[in-house]
Design a binder for these strands. Structure first.
Lengths: 226, 226
DNA sequence: CATGGATGGATAGTGCCAGTCTCCAATCAG
DNA sequence: CTGATTGGAGACTGGCACTATCCATCCATG
């Protein structure tokens, strides 16, 4: 259950230094339960190992690159840990838990829920996504976003499923690749990989899109006539 | 320069009600300069028009859907306004200004900058993006993200340009569509449209990606064996 | 015409978040 | 031996995005 450390144990200070994080922050994460406690060797000495270091690095990555709030990190850590304990869920269960921990709570359905849901259905059909997904929390998240989009329709946002097609196609392309890239790891590492991928490559996609827009504007409007 | 209002003027309270925002918040935006002042009609009466309403709605959308911090909204507003005044930039100029206001400041290059830059070059070549882009702020943003990705390479993140290909392809697909969808509006509206699109469809892309991952996990791992 | 409830404007205060600081007694390293 | 570190608990900070409170008008209504 507890994997055997293969390297020399670290003190809190060393741990902090190794991850390039202030000691105070590490203490804070410990307090918040984001980082499991070290094995206490005396009143003033506790041992941490490379699993702590990996966890700490993960936490920092998610905070710095992904701006993931500490509260959501806690949910994520919960998913990570009760995976270790409880194996009743398959890989999909872990992934689902982790993914929805990252996504956070979904706003309640509003007045446009119906239309949003129908639109979501059209979009999913566009790329042949499974109908079972309608029960997933991700579906609810999609519905929520589509509601906002619909609310803005009257102000000029295009919203027909054909207007949105490129987004689903792009998402499907990326998602297919993401899942294919998941190695055949044990569920915990798999979850880590998924989360990191979602956050880091999410940022990547964002900046690539912006750069792409810059390129295509250049093509359409010509170089700046300063 | 100042477009003529076509509807009856609003008082601050009416403006707030129309946008479903607390009056206090509107006052706050006024203070922060996010919203231009109304035309003062007496000590206790100022008139606002539908341009104020549109602006206010835009601000709320960006904050609520996009989590855009108020500071960046200020930059955005600056881009919006000095577009009105100063026409020396073409459409591209406006778009660039708005886009980088949204993106925020780019972190300084680190030790991996060289490799990141080379990688960025390979990615751009993959989809035939213009070389001039190397000078754009978006390029620097891409470099910054790639640096983080590279920093995580040793911990298992794949990073070869072939691994990243799907992301660029998807980004190009979306960006091409985004730019094509920009109407032939005057520059200010164009900028608004770009910004809204970047934020709203950015969220959309995010949730679609998650849903797509759920679908493809389902395909790969089968339904949950609860 | 009086008057109660806005309104514009200025200033101060709130709640939350993510750390950071300060102490402390215990203990380790030189 | 002794000065620096450590783990641990608590209080404190700074930034952000609002809210709340005041106040001197002012306007709309009866």
């Amino acid at each position: 259950m507890v994997s055997t450390p293969t390297t020399a144990p670290l003190t809190l200070g060393e741990l902090a230094r190794a991850a390039e994080v202030p000691v105070g922050t590490v203490k804070y994460y410990l307090r918040e339960g984001l980082l499991p406690e070290g094995r206490l060797r005396s009143t003033t000495r506790a041992d941490y190992d490379e699993t702590h270091l990996a966890r700490l690095r993960l936490l920092r990555l998610l905070r710095e690159v992904g701006d993931v709030p500490v509260g959501r990190l806690r949910d994520l850590v919960a998913a990570l840990e009760d995976e270790g304990a409880d194996r009743t869920h398959g890989s999909l269960g872990v992934l689902a838990a982790g993914s929805s921990a990252l996504a956070g709570p979904v706003p309640a359905p509003g007045p446009l829920a119906e239309r949003a849901d129908a639109l979501a259905g059209e979009l999913a059909a566009e790329v042949g996504w499974d109908d079972q997904l309608r029960a997933a929390p991700e579906w609810a998240a999609l519905r929520a976003v589509l509601e906002t989009v619909l609310a803005w329709e009257r102000l000029g946002l295009p919203v027909a499923s054909t207007d949105l097609r490129p987004y689903v196609v792009a998402a499907d392309l990326v998602a297919r690749h993401d899942v294919a890239a998941l190695g055949d790891l044990d569920p915990t590492d798999l979850l880590t990989q998924l989360v990191v991928g979602q956050v880091v490559y999410g940022r990547l996609l964002e900046v690539l899109r912006r750069l792409g827009e810059a390129h295509h504007s250049l093509v359409r409007y010509g170089p700046p006539d300063h």
